[in-house]
């Protein structure tokens, strides 16, 4: 079997596997069953391997890192999304992760495999600007950060769906709000007395057995979204810095406000705002998740939109 046939096979199986995963996760959300869930995880892991195989085959065929055109870049992004999906599942053991992330991975794969014309799927020679190890590192880290931020922000959307119409207190931030027992446990009288500030209360009755208060589903989703964005944010930062250093070494300017650069900076600002909103009194609850959901769109503009803007379109034409 030659490399091209293998690529077609892997490309189609990645799409089929992710479609299967989507169905499994959605069925599993409707009728919870452990089997559906572990099958979903297996399917995504297989899809991840299939995409890795596809990219490796193209690497072998072309002889350079497979990020030369939109098709390869989309598959690299889909690989990243499945990777962070698996990481998020490992952190949370939650069946809801796949419900949210499988459509994203499937959508990216479908776009690359089905809607891109076949001449755009061919491996293209690398443009001279990309013939640099520094640049390869910069591009691949940026792609991984996009993948993490997409997974994190789609989980924030899932959180918004799960908590619609509720007030919620966030768990997890740099200052560590939410580590304290919620007052719903205070229905038991003696618990209310143990406040550390007072601390002088004398218990007149034996304290009930103290047991850990577990995170709820919404809190799980929220903390998971925060942690995955927390992975994507350093990757984005390192990716931008790598690009800036490379630009300075090659052209003598570490920052030149070109649209792609500017949108990477905008993405960084939006997620920085998200991380700070989590520690702001009065802004906790659903508001940071709304910011993260906006971040989902910003990442897409940064990844694809800027390239469309740059094609000499009237920049205010389709964009606004």
């Amino acid at each position: 079997m030659d490399l091209v046939t293998l690529q077609n096979l892997l490309d189609n199986s990645a799409f089929a596997l992710l479609l299967g995963a989507l169905i499994l996760y959605w069925l599993g959300a409707a009728w919870p069953a452990a089997l559906l869930n572990s099958l979903g995880t297996t399917t995504v892991a297989l899809a991840n391997l299939a995409i890795a195989g596809l990219l490796a085959a193209r690497w072998l065929e072309a002889g350079y890192f497979p990020l030369s055109n939109l098709y390869e870049s989309l598959f690299f992004l889909a690989w990243g999304v499945t990777l962070f999906h698996l990481i998020a599942e490992a952190i949370s053991h939650s069946r809801l992760v796949g419900v949210a992330t499988a459509p994203v991975a499937l959508g990216i794969t479908a776009f690359a495999a089905l809607s891109l014309p076949s001449e755009m799927q061919q491996s293209a020679p690398l443009v001279p600007a990309l013939k640099s190890n520094w640049l390869m590192m910069h591009v691949s880290i940026m792609m991984l950060s996009y993948a993490a931020l997409l997974v994190g922000s789609v989980l924030a959307m899932a959180f918004l769906v799960v908590t619609r119409g509720q007030a919620i207190d966030l768990k997890g931030s740099s200052i560590g709000n939410g580590a304290y027992r919620l007052t719903r446990a205070a229905a038991i009288p003696s618990l209310a007395l143990g406040d550390s500030a007072g601390g002088t209360a004398v218990l007149t009755q034996a304290p009930p057995t103290l047991s850990p208060q577990r995170l709820t589903l919404a809190e799980t989703l929220d903390n998971l979204s925060y942690r995955v964005i927390g992975l994507g944010f350093p990757l984005l930062t390192i990716g931008i810095v790598a690009g800036a250093v490379w630009a300075n070494e090659a052209w003598g300017s570490y920052w030149s406000w070109d649209p792609k650069e500017t949108w990477a900076f905008i993405t960084w600002l939006v997620f920085a705002a998200y991380l700070h909103a989590r520690i702001t009194r009065g802004w906790q609850g659903r508001r940071p998740a709304v910011l993260a959901s906006i971040g989902f769109g910003v990442v897409w503009v940064c990844y694809l939109g800027v390239n469309l803007l740059g094609k000499g379109l009237h920049s205010y034409g389709w964009f606004l």
Binding site: W257, P259, T262, W263, F265, I266, L269, V270, A272, A273, H276, A277, I279, T280, G282, W283, V306, L309, S315, Y316, F319, L320
Partner: peptide
């Protein structure tokens, strides 16, 4: 105030967007 800092981050983001939409 953190809210002021977040406002600044978002304002800088909006101003940056304007520079990618309006020709410079």
């Amino acid at each position: 105030d953190l809210r002021f800092a977040i406002l600044l981050l978002l304002l800088i983001a909006l101003a940056s967007i304007s520079g990618t939409v309006i020709e410079q």
